[in-house]
Simulated assay, not measured.
Amino acid sequence: MEFDGKAMVITGGATGIGFALARALGNEGAAVIIAEPREHRLQEAVEKLSGEGIRADHFVCDVTDLAQVEALADFAWDQGRPVGGIVNNAGVAHPRSRMHKEAMDDVRSLFDVNFFGVWHGCSVFARRLAEQGTPAGIYNTGSENSLFVAAPGSAAYVASKHAVLGLTDALRDEVPEYIKIGIICPGFVQSELVSKELMPMAMPADKFASIIVRQMKDDRFFLVSHSYNIERVDHRHAEITSAYEGYAPRYDGDEEYDIRTLIEKLRAAQSAKAELD
């Protein structure tokens, strides 16, 4: 991926990780468009970015509303330059509690932003970027919580970020090769989601963004940052491997029930039949 001269859209781009990514992409030559519902925060962010020599604009958008995401895309394409892609970064959290104590209205509102907001961005921009026909990227901000449970007592948040991983993984099978797909997996990064007491211990957002943009340019799918996370990822993989080795070990011909293999065989048979017909 190259970003110079392209428009890059970042939802949740006025603060925290989104703002840092806007700054980093702007320093790569992108014209950044930041979006979120609070216009005064967008205006403040654009003023900062413009003061640093970055081409920046804003658009008021609530990602839970599909029509507003369509309008955001209209705005991006109306700028008169190729759209390089979108970072679906908007996200929320709520205070930690046990799963059975979480109010369902709170769970649904969290999923509306963290998952369905990402879904809206993917569905709108994937279609339009495919029609544009030039190299571009769709990057979804998941979390280390997409890979394991990093924050106990946050079932709704963790589940939403696992869902973002599933969506992002599925999407890369559905887009043309010239559209790169990636999931951003932040660890503990300074943002408005972090309490004042913990903020000094978190990774600075600009440091995080510099690590992530480098991986965007290298067309990586998993965009990672916090090195200690591999300990927890290895533990998760070891647990899965142990389960398979103990209860579903490999055997010759074990692809007989593999759904992806079976779908590919079915498609090949249908294609061969169509050619004969």
Results as ranks from 00 to 15, higher is better:
1 M>F: 14
2 E>V: 04
2 E>N: 09
3 F>H: 09
3 F>I: 00
7 A>Q: 12
8 M>T: 03
8 M>D: 02
11 T>M: 09
11 T>D: 08
11 T>R: 09
13 G>R: 01
13 G>F: 01
13 G>H: 01
13 G>P: 09
15 T>I: 06
15 T>P: 11
20 A>F: 11
22 A>H: 07
22 A>C: 07
25 L>R: 02
26 G>S: 08
31 A>Q: 02
36 E>F: 02
38 R>E: 07
40 H>Y: 11
40 H>F: 12
42 L>E: 04
42 L>K: 02
45 A>R: 10
48 K>W: 04
49 L>Q: 08
56 A>Q: 14
57 D>H: 05
57 D>C: 03
63 V>R: 03
66 L>C: 03
70 E>V: 01
71 A>C: 03
73 A>H: 05
75 F>K: 13
79 Q>F: 13
80 G>M: 12
81 R>D: 01
82 P>L: 00
89 N>I: 00
89 N>E: 02
89 N>V: 00
94 H>Q: 01
95 P>D: 00
97 S>Y: 03
100 H>W: 11
102 E>F: 02
103 A>L: 12
107 V>C: 08
109 S>W: 11
113 V>N: 05
113 V>Q: 03
116 F>A: 01
116 F>Y: 13
117 G>M: 09
118 V>D: 07
120 H>N: 14
120 H>G: 02
121 G>F: 06
123 S>F: 02
124 V>G: 10
126 A>V: 06
129 L>V: 12
129 L>R: 09
130 A>N: 13
132 Q>V: 10
133 G>H: 14
138 I>N: 08
138 I>D: 04
139 Y>C: 03
140 N>Y: 12
141 T>G: 09
141 T>R: 05
142 G>S: 12
146 S>V: 06
149 V>E: 08
156 A>T: 12
158 V>M: 04
158 V>Y: 12
158 V>Q: 08
159 A>C: 15
164 V>R: 05
170 A>M: 10
171 L>W: 14
172 R>L: 13
178 Y>T: 02
179 I>K: 11
179 I>H: 11
181 I>V: 14
184 I>N: 12
191 S>R: 09
195 S>D: 08
196 K>G: 00
197 E>R: 10
198 L>D: 14
201 M>N: 11
201 M>F: 14
204 P>Q: 00
204 P>R: 00
206 D>F: 03
209 A>H: 10
212 I>G: 07
213 V>P: 15
214 R>N: 14
214 R>L: 07
216 M>K: 01
216 M>G: 02
217 K>Q: 14
221 F>P: 15
224 V>M: 14
227 S>G: 09
231 E>G: 10
232 R>S: 03
235 H>S: 12
236 R>G: 04
238 A>V: 00
238 A>R: 05
240 I>E: 04
241 T>A: 06
242 S>K: 15
244 Y>L: 06
245 E>G: 06
246 G>W: 01
250 R>A: 09
251 Y>E: 08
259 I>P: 04
261 T>L: 01
262 L>W: 12
262 L>C: 04
263 I>M: 11
265 K>T: 05
265 K>G: 10
267 R>M: 13
271 S>N: 15
272 A>M: 14
275 E>V: 15
277 D>S: 00
